[in-house]
Amino acid sequence: MDDIVLEVREFKKRFGAIKAVDGLDLEVRRGDIFGFLGPNGAGKSTTIRAMAGLVRPSNGEIRIFGHDVWRDRKKALSRVGMLVESPGLYRYLTGRQNLEMFAELSGGKHADDIKRALEITGLTDRADDKVKNYSHGMKQRLGLAQAILCQPELVILDEPTDGLDPQGMKEVRELIKNLAGECGITVFLSSHLLHEVEQVCTKVAVIHKGQKLADGKVSDILTKRSRIKITIDRTKDALTAIKEKGLSADISDDGCISVQIEPNSDAAEINSFLVEKGFRVSAVIPEKTSLEEFYFSIMGEYSGKADKA
């Protein structure tokens, strides 16, 4: 239990008649880089706002380091750095003054922490310029800098690469990996960029319309959904045989059979099965599922269920 850094239990949030989040459960453990995915309006931002104590849960609770965020916010947030949506910064202050102020509120103004945060985010040269003169990307970096001030143990980032150029996005990805790897910081990352999440995160949860559709280790999810592509004669007969075996398969655009395989199943076993049935197998090529494919497949499944309902 000590390993659990962030815990969301039965979290519900209604705004009038609208259910923004409907019974969400999440668990983030120490050292995780946790990706939080979902389309616009899925309830991601509401959940993150509740993690920051900005939104009061209608039901359920959110605990950080074992402390309820709404009832015991000072203890819950004392070791947390956050970037909630676009960075809210004082435009009439300099970047350094912003950081000094947020550092004071986070437990103390440590010159070394501020220097380090500026260095990490590449803002040292512009630290004494007023924020109103910053570009969107620089504001985003400053938002990140305030999130990593005062050596947090958990960093919650909502769309941290929003507005950054490709180089900036790459740097932020590296930063997140470093935070988790070298600094041992647990990271909770909400992003629309599936490629980014796949590259960075170790665990992921997908929500839609306020409900969790899937969660787990990224490696497990991708394996669970992995496919093999089989080049074979009498394609239609082979497809029927594979389906009769209980596997999910279809014929791809190039005329091959694409088979979804279970995590522990062996591609060689399917090959043997087809050969025994008298088919001539020319090639068996493993296909790695991307997080994007996984995401759209579960979104598709959800839409299918919703249509039937």
Binding site: L77, V80, V84, L105, S106
Partner: peptide, 9 residues
């Protein structure tokens, strides 16, 4: 900025 302010402890 209220968002950032209130996300501090």
């Amino acid at each position: 900025t209220l968002r950032t302010l209130l996300s501090k402890p």
